[in-house]
Design a protein around this nucleic acid. Structure first.
Lengths: 301, 284
DNA sequence: ATAATAGACACACATT
DNA sequence: GTTTAT
DNA sequence: GAATGTGTGTCTATAAT
């Protein structure tokens, strides 16, 4: 595959970004363009530290200021943060409370899973409730704060393998994104619209075209099965309908040509007439005869 | 079926006439925010709403059939809660893409995908890596804010925290402020009022494309390619009429360049379409 | 007299 | 004009 | 596109020197 990976010094430490060779043709031309995504690994110790700073209102770096700093360097690219080992941290901190040997365990987890971890004593205001519960809530607060103020998403992982998988998935997503976006821009939206039946199969001689013709009528808004059937029954092919329009003398006549076609209704009594109606008749007429592709069928006038 | 999309199509999205649904979180009282549950999204879909002040809410002109002005303001935050099992089924039957499309189409500025049961990713009818990729795509490709949650309780906690923060951000103090003006202490802006979005009108081009795609083998690219040359049924019929021989009709579209870079539509579909539009009598 | 064929390759469509 | 082999 | 697998049809090159 024509892609490569390089470890180089980044503007933001521990970050992954992507470049794509764009440009039509020039070979030597290093006209690489940065993809609008950045994945930043945040060391657990730093994350915890920032989260603490956010809780107590110190003037040191907070999660929000960190995000702001990163986004400043990445110039408006979408930022995603990753933190590894938070759950294990919670567990050990909870355990350390029960065993009264907190600092030692912390140092174990930090040096075991991160490079150069250092213990970080936490000061807490007030309560003595389970500290791990409170921490989870505080983290939740910090994440929501980050979401609302910076639009930054934080992915919490528990292993380095997960980080590898994430990098892989992320890379794939970033690579495919432009392709998919272009398809959304160009393609027709009704591809994925609620109830979309795909084309009716038609054999080599033309069987099935009647069904196609009926379903073509159904492509108009607010057309029921029975209405389409009624129209197709009266004009069993597009050409017959077009010829009928050509024979009509006045605009009014052509417009209302289908209006009085009877349509079978539900068994009960219906207030509305059991006809196609002039509105749908007009829409079908415009569709078949108008030279203007951008003409709005629903506009009244 | 009433859902976000259809509400929008009918032009009643976020209008006060939209029936009220059970709030998942209790109302915060006058001026507070609430998450309104939109109907019919099997997976929960919540919209952050705030009551509009009376002054900013002019009464609708009397005797009008038009939808009245909204009495509530959508804050632009919408949460689609999705359990892993639901996500799994949605992906399989194709609903997933549709839902994402509607969420992006509904016009709110901050769509949030709340993925629940992040731990129960296994033993479902889809591989774990597949689901992971799907969620990442939702985040990267669709640009939605993805929040992962272990269970309902975490989801509720998240929504609670979110509500509190929204209250602080868009509280009563900023009520008299004009829309879009930055707040004092941050870059936050109040969302513009989302009132009535009129249903998008069908055009001849759009209907024509849909009609072409009723025949098996004609896809979006193919239809677009045909539309490129004959953008209206009338022009296509005219082209067929201008053909001297039936053979010319059959081949009229055969060399139409499709999709990527200019692949022929081919004689097969060309013949089928010619039959469709040139058969003088009733169709088989 | 005239031309074909296999195979790669896409794409539309169907499944675990 | 319809049939044949590559 | 979730990922992968199935069948239609186009497309491209094809021998031997």
């Amino acid at each position: 595959m024509d892609c490569s990976c390089a470890i180089e010094s980044q503007a933001v430490p521990c970050s992954i970004s992507w470049k794509r060779q764009v440009g039509p043709s020039q070979v030597d031309d290093d006209s690489w363009v940065e993809e609008p995504n950045v994945l930043v690994l945040l060391r657990l110790e730093d994350f915890v530290s920032m989260e603490v700073q956010g809780t107590a209102d110190c003037s040191e770096e907070t999660l929000r200021s960190f995000a702001a700093r990163v986004m400043e360097k990445t110039a408006g690219r979408t930022l995603a943060l990753v933190v590894v080992g938070l759950e294990k941290y919670f567990r050990l901190e909870f355990l350390s409370h029960k065993l009264q040997s907190r600092k030692k365990l912390q140092s174990v987890v930090l040096s075991g899973s991160q490079a150069g971890g250092q213990g970080k004593p936490r000061k807490r205001k007030g309560k003595e409730a389970p500290i791990s519960e409170l921490s989870r809530v505080e983290v939740e607060e910090a994440l929501v704060d980050l979401q609302l103020h910076a639009g930054v998403q934080v992915r919490v992982l528990e292993s380095w393998k997960e980080l590898g998988d994430l990098a892989s998935s992320f890379t794939k997503a970033v690579a495919e994104a432009p392709f998919k976006r272009e398809r959304e821009k160009k393609g027709f939206s009704f591809y994925l619209e609620s109830e979309w039946c795909r084309g009716a199969k038609v054999d080599r001689s033309g069987k099935g075209l009647a069904q196609v013709w009926k379903r073509q009528i159904q492509q108009f808004n607010r057309v029921s099965l029975e209405m389409a059937g009624a129209v197709v029954s009266k004009y069993p092919s597009p050409l017959l309908l077009a010829q009928a329009y050509r024979k009509g003398s006045s605009e009014q006549e052509r417009q209302n040509m289908l209006a009085d076609i009877p349509v079978r209704r539900g068994d009960g009594v219906t207030a509305t007439t059991r006809r196609i109606g002039s509105e749908l008749s007009r829409r079908i007429y415009l569709q078949m005869t108008s030279p203007n592709p951008d003409l709005s069928l629903d506009a009244n006038g | 079926m009433l859902d976000l999309y259809h509400h929008r199509r009918e032009g009643w999205l976020f209008s006060p006439s939209t029936p009220s649904y059970k709030n998942v979180l209790p109302d915060q009282g006058a001026g507070g925010h609430c998450w309104r549950r939109e109907p019919e999204t099997v997976a929960l879909c919540l919209v952050a709403l705030r009551a509009l002040p009376e002054a900013a809410c002019p009464l609708p002109p009397p005797g009008q059939l038009q939808p009245p002005a909204p009495r509530e303001l959508a804050l632009g935050y919408v949460v689609e809660r999705k359990r892993m099992a639901d996500l799994c089924s949605s992906i399989i039957d194709g609903r997933f893409r549709e839902q994402k499309f509607r969420l992006h189409q509904c016009g709110l500025q901050h769509p949030i995908y709340l993925v629940e049961d992040s731990g129960t990713i296994q033993h479902l009818s889809l591989p774990e890596s597949t689901l992971q990729q799907a969620v990442i795509n939702t985040q990267v490709v669709d640009g939605f804010f993805v929040k992962r949650t272990r269970d309902v309780r975490e989801s509720a906690a998240y929504l609670t925290v979110m509500t509190r923060h929204l209250d602080r951000l868009f509280g009563v103090s900023s009520r008299e402020r004009s829309w879009g003006e930055p707040r004092e202490s941050g870059t936050e802006t109040l969302p513009p009022p989302i009132s009535v979005i009129p249903p998008q009108a069908q055009t001849v081009r759009e209907v024509f494309a849909r009609q072409l795609m009723q025949v098996s083998g004609v896809s979006g690219d193919k239809a677009a390619a045909i539309l490129e040359r004959y953008s209206t049924p009338a022009s296509l019929l005219a082209a067929y009429a201008a053909c001297l021989s039936p053979q010319d009709k059959e081949m009229l579209l055969s060399n139409t360049k499709c999709g990527k870079l200019q692949r022929n539509l081919g004689p097969t579909l060309s013949k089928t379409l010619a039959q469709l539009y040139c058969t003088p009598g009733p169709l088989p």
